[in-house]
Design a protein around this nucleic acid. Structure first.
Lengths: 343, 343
DNA sequence: TTGTACGCGTTATCAT
DNA sequence: ATGATAACGCGTACAA
């Protein structure tokens, strides 16, 4: 039960504490024999250095924190995976942290900065509407990646953003649907209170309609259910079911995320209708599953790999003082697959 | 850039360090006025207590670590979610940690125990074949949940396990397929080296065949590709594609996980065949997506919610000294859906 | 090459 | 109700 400490090891070995410390941290100034002897005892005793004490004392550590809001979405899972690969390659350690929808990511970040010795932070998802005042406390370089935040002017220089222009891409998708002949386009959107990507994607939808002189009809917008898991398959399923039950006419359904589109597909199938014959369905995100479900889903593909690379690259450059904070916008890509057709 | 410490706060407030500490930790013996004054200064200064120092000093903390091997599988995602809910309810904090396929989860756990003051550990996934010698170092109660480990006899009393009998459930599924008339049952399995759930599920398959006097044919077993992401949709897709290309005859395909079954479905579709008319397909796990894809997937459903509850309940009982370590086996359930039919 | 002693930021104990 | 001070386990400057 008792914790073995460095002192115990030193005592057992009959050497000084610092010698043990040197053995652990591969310092040069140590006799190879004493070193291997110490290592043996360490193994025998099952000694593991206390990380808290280490972090407390250490000058620097090489870790990057990644804070994800809403891990369940596979989109983030693969983003995290790409980022992790990049971080590892740079010989840094990644500290992954999930933050709840209701948690304040800045508070979590502040904790983390104190706890680990963070070199940088990457925020994934969530909406960034924190006051610059609060952001100042965060004295570590950080990057918002694929977050739907709109930077306050004053904050622009305090952090970087890597994102896809959700409004523009959303516009393009709806524009595409209109161009292949759809006029009655329903949308499964985020909840009405959403201030994040959901809102931007809805804006894009509205603009596309407007530019084509198609009147906006609120009845065609179906927000996801707040009481269900956000962006989940089931949420898409339920929303689509309600839409179909409402009797509103539409020829295309634009769903705010691929996962939800999967649910939409099922709801349509159960209603005895076919995709794309009866309804065209388009998603957003470009996650893997859209390629493997039948029909495959037309979607807005986001360049995950590139964005991950850029995020890490930029972060390291900023850490090294080579670059200033900047705001990069990546282009998405409309990937046309089986779920949509011209009418 | 400078870190604000408790000392700074004390100095600014003109009080002693311990008073500040009391304000932070909601100790009873403190004047409400001084407390609110201190809190104001803390906010102003953006002070956040250093967690390393805290953990170093603190007697106890209420955290439970959850170590997940292979987070990408949605099965674990929902398991984690359930566990988190339970932990929160008990007013504990959850420390979520992803462990890579090649990492040693015990080493990771040892680190974590030292770093945080863990009250307990939950291992999700992975295979547990560590020597009891090594497990002794872990002087914190831990539970293996849904891991495919077979406890060494000597280790039985050192930890608990919560699991589904993979061999038995796998047997039942194959037994079911045979009973509805299938004799040529192909299987997408884990890699040949797999020593974990993959092996157990394969064993169950073999036993069911044997009990029905159906000869085992290795050609029908298609291991997943080690170079692709394990248990991924794509892996299922590729393996099935190869199986179909091989020309081996079969009427049913048993896939080791639902996610992979999704890929299998697509591969079959692309080959111009239909499910369940041409091939019956069965999965394993019982994840959400199986309910929403068309055809819906027949699967072995694992009682995630219950298992999560039991895991946490047991862990807390053990922590409280109310129970000894034990080994619980839950029953899965064959959920018949659209992807299988009698022939 | 090795050991001693101090300090990291915090909490707990004890005295006031 | 508050303050001074001793730990917590480790790294490291400095002395030996």
């Amino acid at each position: 039960m008792e914790q073995v400490t460095i002192k115990d090891i030193a005592r057992i070995c009959g050497v000084g504490i610092s010698t043990v410390s040197r053995a652990i941290n591969n310092h040069p100034d140590i006799n190879p024999e004493t070193k291997s002897m110490i290592n043996r005892v360490i193994r025998e005793q099952g000694y593991v250095p206390n990380n808290s004490a280490r972090n407390l004392k250490r000058t620097e550590a090489k870790n990057i924190a990644v804070l994800v809001k809403g891990m369940s979405n596979p989109f983030f899972t693969s983003m995290v995976k790409s980022i992790e690969k990049e971080i590892k390659q740079k010989k840094y350690a990644m500290v992954l942290h999930q933050v709840e929808y209701e948690e304040d990511e800045i508070d979590v970040a502040l904790e983390l900065v104190k706890e680990k010795r963070l070199k940088g932070i990457i925020f994934l998802g969530g909406y960034f509407k924190h006051s610059s005042e609060k952001l100042e406390y965060l004295n570590v370089p950080f990057i918002l990646s694929t977050s739907g935040g709109i930077a306050e002017v004053s904050s622009k220089t305090m952090y970087s953003t890597i994102s896809v222009d959700d409004m523009k891409e959303s516009y393009r998708m709806v524009d595409y649907l209109i161009k292949i002949g759809h006029k009655k386009i329903a949308m499964i959107s985020a909840s009405r209170q959403d201030e994040s990507i959901g809102k931007l994607r809805l804006e894009g939808y509205k603009m596309a309609l407007k530019d084509h002189q198609i009147p906006f009809r609120p009845e065609l917008i179906r927000p996801m259910d707040q009481s269900l898991e956000l962006y989940s398959i089931e949420n898409g399923y339920q929303a689509t079911k309600k839409l179909l039950a409402s009797g509103e006419e539409f020829t295309a359904l634009y769903v705010i995320s691929d996962m939800m589109a999967v649910g939409a597909l099922r709801a349509i199938y159960e209603a005895g209708k076919k995709v794309p014959e009866d309804y065209s369905v388009a998603g957003y995100d470009g996650i893997d599953i859209g390629k493997y479900i039948t029909p495959t889903i037309t979607t807005v593909h986001q360049p995950i790999e590139e964005m991950a690379k850029e995020t890490i690259g930029l972060l390291f450059d900023i850490i090294a003082g080579k670059k200033q904070h900047q705001h990069k916008v990546f282009s998405g890509e409309i990937v046309v697959r089986e779920s949509t057709k011209s009418i």
